[in-house]
């Protein structure tokens, strides 16, 4: 079998024996302890500064953002964005209860779609699992609450994130994934998203709006 032949060749090249318990212990230890490496000081801030850094970094990667005080205001923020971008009052949303609570469904002026995107939506709305201040990165994951197609198919992606879910670094957020799903377990897809899609493949000129959303709008709540 190729598998065994490849593994045997690796061991021969490395001059090691498959039964070597020390090596196995080292590997098992690293996989369970998951030691942290160098974590940049820039994200190690008190909450308020952390949120401010997140907002600055979000703008630096060509996303737009707004901060609102309460979930009730997020609805206005969503509608303001649609109006400001000259979009129809139509938006696709997953099953996230935090988004259902915004009351877009009950609003007669708004047409809302549910479930995954089929590729013809101008605007989709998602709720992020969290944000990373050090680089202005959002983290979302697959599931019925926030289908992954909503992150990639629309022209405009609007993402709500709670200020309390913003952390300084990727490691802290990944710890929370471990806590939520169990050690070594993951949702099918975890997306770290840093700004709207772009390409520099034509003469190294940076252009926004490649295959993913042309615009990313972030609403920070709290």
């Amino acid at each position: 079998m190729s598998r065994d032949a490849i593994l045997a060749r690796m061991r021969r090249s490395l001059g090691v024996h498959p039964g070597d318990v020390t090596r196995r212990a080292e590997v098992a230890d690293r996989l369970t302890r998951t030691p942290r490496g160098v974590v940049p000081a820039r994200g190690q801030l008190a909450r308020e500064e952390l949120v401010r850094l997140f907002l600055d970094k979000t703008v630096a990667v060509q996303a737009s953002c707004v901060r609102v005080a309460s979930p009730a205001e997020s609805k206005t923020a969503v509608l303001d964005y649609l109006r400001g971008a000259n979009l129809p009052m139509r938006i696709r949303i997953g099953a996230d209860r935090r988004l259902a609570a915004l009351g877009l469904e009950a609003d007669p002026l708004v047409e809302d779609g549910h479930g995954p995107s089929a590729g013809d939506d101008l605007a989709c709305l998602s709720h992020a699992f969290g944000g990373v201040a050090e680089s202005g990165t959002l983290m979302l994951h697959s599931g019925p609450d926030n289908p992954t197609t909503l992150n990639f198919l629309p022209d405009h992606h609007i993402v709500v994130v709670d200020a309390d879910d913003i952390y300084g670094d990727y490691e802290t957020l990944l710890d929370l994934v471990r806590e939520t799903y169990g050690i070594g377990e993951m949702p099918r897809t975890v997306n770290f998203i840093t700004g709207p899609s772009r390409s520099a493949d034509i003469e190294q000129t940076l252009l926004l709006g490649a295959h993913g959303p042309r615009s990313l709008h972030v609403i920070v709540v709290g």
């Binding site: 990667v61 680089s135 202005g136 990165t137 993951m186 897809t189 770290f192 993913g212």
Partner: peptide, 10 residues
């Protein structure tokens, strides 16, 4: 600082 999409698939 980060590419736009870093995607973890399991």
């Amino acid at each position: 600082e980060m590419s736009v999409y870093t995607t973890l698939s399991t």
